[in-house]
Amino acid sequence: MKITKILISMLLLVAVFMISGCNNTDVTKQDKPSAGVTTNTDKPADDTLEIKVYFPNNDASKLVAEKKKVKLKGATKYRAAMDALLAGTDDRKLTTVIPKDAKVLGVTVTGDTAKVDFNKAMVDKLSGGSTGEEMLVGSIVNTLTEFPEIKKVQIVIEGRKVETLKGHMDTSQPITRMEELLK
């Protein structure tokens, strides 16, 4: 009896160390719940969709499509695609351009145009530069126009149309797919 108790105690001690060790290394990953985005490929549920999300490569010479499985969880596929974009990429060859604090406030679709609304952090925290701005807008527009029914994307900030995000690109009108960034 005593031996089993000691054995159990020792096992528990080991378990506790293992758990705390895990916590230490995995904190960053677990802290990033990305609104329904998951890279699990082994659980294809009914509301799981495979979409293409665009990220710029590290030298910002083009956008590269990354396949992601997203769980809709009641959200529209457009919203899920935007959340997947904002969640960023783990690919070392690609860069996450969307500022960390940026949030999607909503995505609405009218006809062939998607209107995507972001909070102000999207503009304030962006580092600027033509290339940075181009890649940011391109990744949003190309990810949404990946859905065949979407032809144009209007970017708005906290409900309002903006002339430009960072002083270069004209974002006052809906933007069509930016094929030139994919070459």
């Binding site: 996450t96 351009v97 580092s127 600027g128 530069g129 033509s130 290339t131 940075g132 270069h168």
Partner: peptide, 17 residues
Amino acid sequence: VHCNAFTNSEANGTGTY
């Protein structure tokens, strides 16, 4: 006349729009 910028410091080169 501008200076370019990108999130990743690897990005480099000169370009005209």
